[in-house]
């Protein structure tokens, strides 16, 4: 059986070669569902370490991006042995960069980390109009809506999106988190979001708090 602690550590160290080698070896043993879930869990714990090291300024944004890549390669290897029902989703997040803004780096980091934490993320992409958010919230019924933006004008689009969610009677059914350079506590209040963050790892923690 795979050494789960060593796996967690290798993910935390972002030691890709070691992680992938361990997982390949593991998959070759034709593991059962329970074991595989434990391995996924160990990877997620490794990602939590990555988040902590980021907070401690040992890692930087580039490392977070790589961590996301590493995790998706890891999941690719595990896919064949991951039973359908074994992937427990802790919650759904409808996510997008708001209208007028084409930046997606922050959004993508958050997406990777949220997925690593067990969320199902529905990524609407960039320059997403308020109406598209509303439509998707209606269709998917997520617990959380995440809006991202880098330009200050993104704040207006965020407000517009929240207002339209209200008009559509959907606002009370979801938690709204906003992220990106221009967001502040004041902006959060004006927009009518439930939380704001400029730190993807922290954002994921907030979301975890909501679905517990």
């Amino acid at each position: 059986m795979l050494d789960l602690q060593a796996l967690t550590k290798a993910v935390g160290d972002l030691n890709e070669q070691q992680v992938l080698a361990m997982l390949k070896e593991f998959v070759a043993t034709n593991p059962g569902n329970e074991e595989t879930v434990a391995v996924v869990n160990a990877c997620q714990q490794g990602m939590a370490i990555v988040g902590e090291l980021f907070d401690q300024k040992e890692y930087f944004v580039g490392d977070l991006i790589f961590a996301g890549e590493l995790l998706s390669s890891a999941i690719d290897i595990l896919k064949p042995v991951l039973g359908g029902e074994s992937t427990v989703t802790v919650g759904k997040i409808v996510l997008g960069t708001v209208e007028g803004d084409l930046h997606d780096i922050g959004k993508n980091i958050f997406k990777n980390m949220a997925e690593a934490a067990g969320f199902e993320v529905i990524d609407l992409g960039i320059d997403v109009p308020a109406a598209t958010f509303v439509e998707k919230v209606k269709e998917i019924k997520p617990e959380i809506v995440g809006m991202s933006g880098v330009l200050t004008l993104a704040l207006d689009s965020m407000k517009k999106t929240v207002d339209e969610l209200k008009t559509a009677g959907l606002r009370d059914g979801v938690k709204v988190i906003i992220g990106g350079n221009p967001v502040t506590e004041e902006a959060c209040r004006v927009i009518g979001a439930d939380a704001f963050t400029t730190n993807a790892a922290e954002g994921v923690k907030i979301c975890q708090g909501w679905v517990k």
Binding site: G100, D101, L102, H103, D104, I105, I126, L151, L153
Partner: peptide, 13 residues
């Protein structure tokens, strides 16, 4: 370098 719907020239990834 693409001008978005609101007239800002932006730099997508």
């Amino acid at each position: 370098f693409v001008m978005s719907s609101n007239g800002f020239l932006q730099h997508p990834e």
